[in-house]
Design a protein around this nucleic acid. Structure first.
Lengths: 149, 149
DNA sequence: CTAGATCGTCAGCGCTACTGATGATTAGCG
DNA sequence: CGCTAATCATCAGTAGCGCTGACGATCTAG
């Protein structure tokens, strides 16, 4: 889809257009660079989340990732089938599942993170390094600010 | 969905996470502010595109909008049912449809554009005006740069 | 021990992207 | 002019993802 989206200024200036198409392009770049890594961008997000902090429950993890709780089931099914994570019932509360990264999961996370770095770099290739850093910082502030509801 | 996405830095620093969640939030804001305007954010995009420049064909318009060509059919069906656009066969090439805004479409576009402005303002509320302008400018450059394929 | 809440899971709906087909139309080429 | 290939809008079918509502298992409150 990385085509001639020559849309005129009234569309191009819309923030929603800019965000949507930047994301679309970044997703394409991720798909390209993650090919062969064994995970999708979505799964990479889950691995990152688990590495960052073990969540209390699948639903907590889903909430944090912005993934639907019912989609989290299939997402973890896939990661578990590839032996990147393990689901065990929480001994303290056996309704819950404790999800843990395996060694293979950690290794894949390393590879996939580097691929993601490269995808980001390509997306930002048209910006000077200082501008790229600035964009990251501004977006970061946006995301943090939105957490407060 | 504007909840406690307390995801640890390794996730929060990912550009794909920042873009996805900014977009998600902006889409929620659009849904809220466009309620009662008669169009969705998706339809607003189509109206903007048509106002900006009459496209040579539906497929060109779809390509520009980043919408699938087959989804464009339903999108225009909806807009036509609401009498915001008119589809006529192109006299010069009767395979094509010329899509035109109606007066009602233009009026709705005005209202919806203002609602979108407000949604954008809310998204950027955590940034100083100069920072907000900077973010817009950087994203704009990103989108233009990606056009080159 | 009972009633209500929570967790993971599943089934079903809606929206969208994508592929592939169809009929109508146009363009290329002799 | 006729014939073939390409293009356009449309439709059917598939797949992914968010969302709702349900279920059994489990925990908590009383």
């Amino acid at each position: 889809m990385g085509d001639e989206r020559d849309v005129g200024p009234a569309v191009r200036r819309r923030l929603i257009y800019q965000l949507k198409h930047s994301l679309l392009r970044l997703e394409e770049l991720h798909a390209a660079h993650l090919e062969g890594s064994g995970v999708t961008a979505r799964e990479l997000g889950a691995l990152l989340l688990l590495a960052d902090r073990e969540p209390e429950s699948q639903q907590q993890a889903a909430l944090r990732l912005g993934v639907d709780r019912t989609s989290m089931v299939a997402l973890l099914d896939g990661l578990e089938a590839k032996a990147f994570v393990v689901r065990r019932p929480d001994p303290a509360d056996r309704r819950r599942n404790v999800v843990e990264l395996t060694d293979a999961g950690r290794a894949t996370l390393d590879v996939a993170t580097r691929a993601s770095d490269e995808a980001e770099r390509e997306l930002l290739a048209d910006l000077d390094p200082p501008d790229a850093a600035l964009l990251r910082e501004l977006l970061g502030r946006l995301v943090i600010g939105s957490g407060g509801g």
